[in-house]
């Protein structure tokens, strides 16, 4: 257990009674929780439990209809300025990578810094190349996303999110669309990021990663958090029947 020396007691995300409906379907049924600066939280649960929807409400890709979400002291309201401010603080990595296919990998990364942060092109490119170096794919800078492997694409996507120098990183099943042999190269990068002190919310089925990196595991089912605990307690001493079933099923293979 990498007991995270980085975790502080300052809250950075505060969620209170967050509700969300898709038409008649009640996806999130009152989520109340606080994430601390530097915390690594792994969110798991069966599909359709609302775990992805939950992290997507944090940068307002999904709108919540009731309750409050405060990110780094900014409340997510209907204020367009707040939404844009929060999106600059929060980086996101998607299951399907969602790289921009019409731009080179380098330009995928520099787009945000140049357009949103108003960085100069040369400074942005320098920073982007450094990030690609950190992701161990500096030689792919001038290629297009379609020309590199899935694992490399996902690392470019992580670099794209990091280029905005976010305080929080959201990962929405970052390894689910990858071939098995590419999963580890992405998890390595995420592990390194965790050790650097980034606040991370990770939706994943990689229980090995969860056990190793997470400070807290949250188990979602039918729109509520039915159990949350440190990895040791969560895996070795689950309280809830639903959690026990889930763990026995995921650890079987």
């Amino acid at each position: 257990m990498a007991e995270n020396e980085n975790t502080t007691n300052d809250p950075i995300i505060i969620c209170e009674d967050v509700h969300k409906w898709f038409d008649d379907f009640h996806v999130l049924k009152g989520i109340t929780t606080t994430f601390k600066k530097g915390e690594k939280a792994v969110i798991c649960g069966p599909s359709g439990s609302g775990k992805s929807t939950f992290i997507r409400t944090i940068n307002h890709l999904e709108e919540h209809q009731r309750g409050t979400i405060i990110v780094d002291g900014i409340e997510l309201s209907n204020d367009l300025r707040n939404i844009n401010l929060i999106r600059q603080e929060v980086g996101m990595v998607f299951q399907q990578f969602n790289l921009f296919p019409h731009l080179t990998n380098l330009k995928n990364i520099t787009l945000g810094p140049i357009q949103v942060r108003k960085m100069s092109k040369s400074a942005a490119e320098e920073a982007a190349l450094a990030l690609l170096e950190r992701m161990d794919i500096a030689d792919q800078a001038y290629k297009y996303p379609a020309e590199i492997s899935g694992g490399q694409q996902q690392r470019v996507a992580i670099a794209r999110a990091l280029a905005m120098e976010p305080k929080i990183m959201l990962f929405d099943e970052p390894t689910s669309a990858l071939d098995p042999e590419m999963i580890s190269e992405v998890l390595d990068v995420m592990r390194e990021l965790a050790h650097s002190g980034m606040t991370m919310l990770v939706v994943t089925h990689e229980m090995g990663f969860a056990r190793e990196v997470a400070d807290r595991i949250m188990f979602f089912d039918e729109g509520v958090v039915i159990e949350e605990a440190a990895p040791a307690d969560f895996f070795d001493n689950p309280q809830h029947e639903r959690t026990k079933l889930f763990i026995s099923q995921t650890l079987q293979h």
Partner: peptide, 25 residues
């Protein structure tokens, strides 16, 4: 849809999402 979401997640404004990411594709 993922293209718009990724562009928004990077912090682009709606007009930039359209001009820089959606229209070129």
């Amino acid at each position: 849809r993922g293209q718009r979401e990724a562009a928004r997640a990077v912090g682009l404004k709606e007009s930039q999402v359209l001009r820089l990411v959606v229209i070129p594709q």
